Simulated scan of single mutants.
Amino acid sequence: MMKLLTLLLSGVLFFSTTISLAQEIDYSEIDLHARQAPKKFHQDLDKLIKYLIKPANNDYERVRSFYSWIAENIAYDIQLFRNYRPSSYQPLSPTDVLKQRKAVCQGYAELLQEMCRQVGIKSYVVGGYSKGFGYVPKAKFTVADHAWNVISIEGNWYLIDVTWGSGGINEKMKFVKQFNELYFLTDPKVFVLNHLPLAPMWQLLDCPVPMKAYAQGEKQIKEYLNQNVGRCANYSKQIEEFEQKPNEEQVFFAAKMAYEFNPDNPVVLARAYMDEANQLMSSIPRQLSSRESIIEATNTQETALNYLQKAQELVKKVKDKSADHEKKLISNNISTSEQNLKGLRNAIK
């Protein structure tokens, strides 16, 4: 999934009191410490983390140190952005991002998440629809094009986009490094003006902004927020329900929520079905020594095929070329699954 980067911003955004505690912290010394990290630590994640958190007194300052270092030291990969192909794109690991010192936003977000994980701070990488470089006003959002982080500090959820915090792409398609703290613990009502997550719970708004209002523009978003205060479900309950599920069920939970939220993008749910099918097929033993084991494998294969067929029906709804890779992959997997199922049924006879 390719990630787009915002143009450099010149305006000032004002945060609400919902993150006043975090705003009361003076981060200037933390930022300076992060920027002075010795180069000998830059490619050693463990040593870099230990250095960055050394002066921090709380998790807010730890995350800020990570944010500042990543924003100052990782560049946006313009070449990958321009040459992106779904079939060939391989996300970089956090270690690879450190080595290459450049990434698209998935790499930025996963590096921040890994840093948080190593110091016991809960973080998720969230995919969604952005209004960054290449955004066309009022166009339909059919493909997720960006990724960022949600983190939990002292029981509260916060939004961070370290990619947009690092700079932007100018009109000449060049990356311009410019530290931007606006996307550090951003007020959700500000963040949603140009970031809309696939699953609405990650808006961190009790009344999540619908896709229609988001697509129409900033005026409509603000009007919706003003009209719907206090009349919707609590997002924290949805996140709690999500976190209580086993990891393999979390993907379906979020994917189904994403599809219900925006039916114009069925690919996210199709991928979830395909991933589940592949996991089921890989769980079937190569050697089946009894009739009972063959029957069990047959049932598993039938379930996997059912998931693949559901995925195929979903991607058929995509009329442009954006899902061509998924369509081909699902079709190939269905053929393999049908062949395996035929062999298993013959073995039962």
Results as ranks from 00 to 15, higher is better:
2 M>K: 12
3 K>L: 02
3 K>G: 15
9 L>D: 08
9 L>Q: 12
11 G>H: 06
12 V>C: 10
13 L>V: 12
14 F>R: 04
20 S>M: 09
20 S>G: 02
27 Y>N: 07
28 S>T: 15
28 S>L: 11
31 D>C: 05
32 L>W: 14
34 A>Q: 08
38 P>G: 02
39 K>F: 00
43 Q>S: 11
45 L>R: 14
45 L>C: 07
46 D>Q: 12
47 K>C: 12
53 I>F: 09
54 K>S: 10
54 K>N: 04
57 N>R: 15
63 V>N: 01
70 I>K: 00
70 I>N: 04
70 I>M: 01
71 A>P: 00
74 I>K: 02
75 A>G: 01
76 Y>R: 05
79 Q>P: 02
83 N>M: 06
91 P>L: 11
103 A>S: 15
105 C>N: 11
110 E>A: 10
111 L>T: 11
111 L>M: 05
111 L>S: 09
113 Q>G: 07
118 Q>H: 13
118 Q>S: 11
120 G>V: 09
120 G>C: 08
122 K>W: 08
122 K>H: 11
124 Y>C: 08
125 V>N: 11
131 K>L: 02
137 P>Y: 09
143 V>M: 10
145 D>K: 05
151 I>P: 03
153 I>H: 10
153 I>S: 09
158 Y>G: 10
160 I>A: 00
160 I>W: 00
161 D>Y: 05
171 E>V: 09
177 K>A: 11
177 K>E: 08
183 Y>K: 01
184 F>A: 07
188 P>L: 03
192 V>E: 00
194 N>L: 03
194 N>K: 12
198 L>C: 03
201 M>A: 07
205 L>M: 08
208 P>I: 00
209 V>K: 11
210 P>G: 05
210 P>A: 07
213 A>W: 02
215 A>R: 10
215 A>F: 00
219 K>C: 00
220 Q>C: 00
220 Q>R: 01
223 E>T: 14
225 L>Y: 02
225 L>N: 08
232 C>N: 03
238 Q>G: 01
240 E>M: 10
244 Q>T: 03
244 Q>Y: 01
245 K>F: 04
251 V>Y: 13
256 K>S: 03
258 A>P: 04
258 A>D: 11
260 E>F: 00
262 N>R: 04
262 N>L: 02
263 P>F: 03
264 D>T: 04
265 N>S: 13
265 N>H: 03
265 N>M: 06
269 L>H: 05
270 A>P: 05
272 A>L: 02
274 M>Q: 14
279 Q>N: 15
282 S>H: 06
285 P>F: 13
290 S>W: 10
292 E>L: 11
292 E>M: 09
294 I>T: 10
296 E>A: 14
302 E>M: 14
308 L>D: 07
309 Q>R: 15
311 A>R: 09
315 V>P: 00
320 D>F: 02
320 D>R: 02
321 K>P: 01
321 K>E: 13
323 A>K: 06
324 D>N: 15
324 D>G: 07
326 E>H: 10
327 K>P: 11
327 K>V: 12
328 K>Q: 14
331 S>C: 07
331 S>R: 13
332 N>D: 15
335 S>K: 15
344 L>Q: 10
345 R>K: 15
346 N>Q: 12
347 A>P: 01
